Simulated scan of single mutants.
Amino acid sequence: MSGTDAAPAPATELLSLRHVSRSVPIAEGQTLTILADIDLEVGAGEHIGIVGRSGTGKSTLLNILGLLDAPSTGTMEFAGEPVQQIARNRAAEIRGRDIGFVFQQFNLLPGRTAVENVEAPLMYGTGREFRNRRRLAAAMLERLGLGDRIDMKPNRLSGGEQQRVAIARSLVREPKLVLADEPTGALDVETGRQVMEILDGITKDSGAALITITHDLAVANMASRQFSLSQGRLNPIVDGATAEALAGELP
């Protein structure tokens, strides 16, 4: 064995998109291309930032990554499984077990407490996960600094606290992939930064991949790799000039 340190093993590939496009019919014999020739590989534990203005295909890409929609052309694999070969009920199972979603508007149940909101995904679990759902939900809220807020309803929580409850809900089943759709859009700058640091830290600790889709370059720049989505095409942001040019396009 040589004295040279071995190179670290590459991250296990979780997502692989090859030449993925998505088109929809708009009139007889006519289609609109929303995504064009997307290539993306995401390893377990990676944080990817995708930035683009409204109308560039961000929601369509999110739906494909979250197995809510399928590519029109190209191939996609999730944890080595070709998405085009996954039956609808299997896709729903993967979404419930292995994919967590964080949204801009929190989407909390207003009549339920914080811990009841976080418990919700565990209601579809089995065995110990189902039986221990309240303990697991409370423990996740504790990790997010909300141990003293578990019995409060959303209207008694600040915007940052509501987003942390939403993050806890997305992580409580220990997903392999977390998709964050404009997760700071409803928050002020400082609260948004704190929320992203929490989300980034917890996903790194758990080994989950995190994909943040945003119009905010500062949020995207917290990721280890950044991409711009423009006119349906995904391109790596490789230098400051690219980022500055993109910033001029964003609202």
Rank of each mutant, 00 (worst) to 15 (best):
M123I: 14
Q194D: 14
P154K: 02
E129T: 15
Y124K: 13
A139P: 02
L199P: 04
A120D: 05
G96P: 05
M140D: 05
V83P: 03
L179Q: 09
R90T: 10
D181E: 12
V172L: 11
L122Q: 05
E197D: 14
M76H: 01
A168Y: 09
A79I: 08
F78C: 06
A180F: 11
E174G: 08
F103Q: 04
R90S: 11
F106G: 01
L109G: 07
D148Q: 13
M196C: 11
R95F: 00
L157R: 07
D98Q: 14
P175D: 08
R95W: 01
L141D: 04
E81V: 13
A79S: 15
A137F: 06
G80A: 04
A137G: 01
A180G: 12
A138D: 12
R173I: 01
G74D: 01
L109I: 15
F130I: 08
G145S: 02
M140N: 05
L177I: 09
P82R: 05
P71G: 09
F130M: 11
E116F: 02
R193F: 14
D69C: 02
A137I: 09
D98W: 07
V165T: 11
R131T: 15
Q162W: 03
E174F: 08
R143T: 09
A139S: 13
L179M: 12
E174L: 12
I94V: 14
F101N: 00
A186L: 09
P183E: 12
L67T: 11
V189C: 08
R193K: 15
V115M: 00
R173M: 02
P183M: 13
G159A: 13
V195W: 04
V195L: 07
K153N: 11
K153T: 14
N89C: 13
P121L: 06
M152I: 07
L171Y: 04
D181H: 10
V115P: 02
R88H: 12
G192A: 12
I167V: 13
F103M: 03
R135A: 15
Q163M: 10
E116D: 11
L187A: 09
A79W: 11
T184V: 11
E77G: 01
A137V: 06
S170K: 05
M140L: 11
G160Q: 08
T126W: 10
L179F: 10
L157N: 03
R169K: 01
L179A: 11
R90G: 01
A186E: 14
N89G: 12
A70V: 15
A139V: 01
R173W: 05
E93D: 11
A92W: 07
V118I: 00
L136N: 12
G74Q: 06
P110K: 07
E93S: 09
Q105T: 13
D98M: 05
G145K: 00
E129Q: 15
F101Q: 07
G100W: 04
E197C: 11
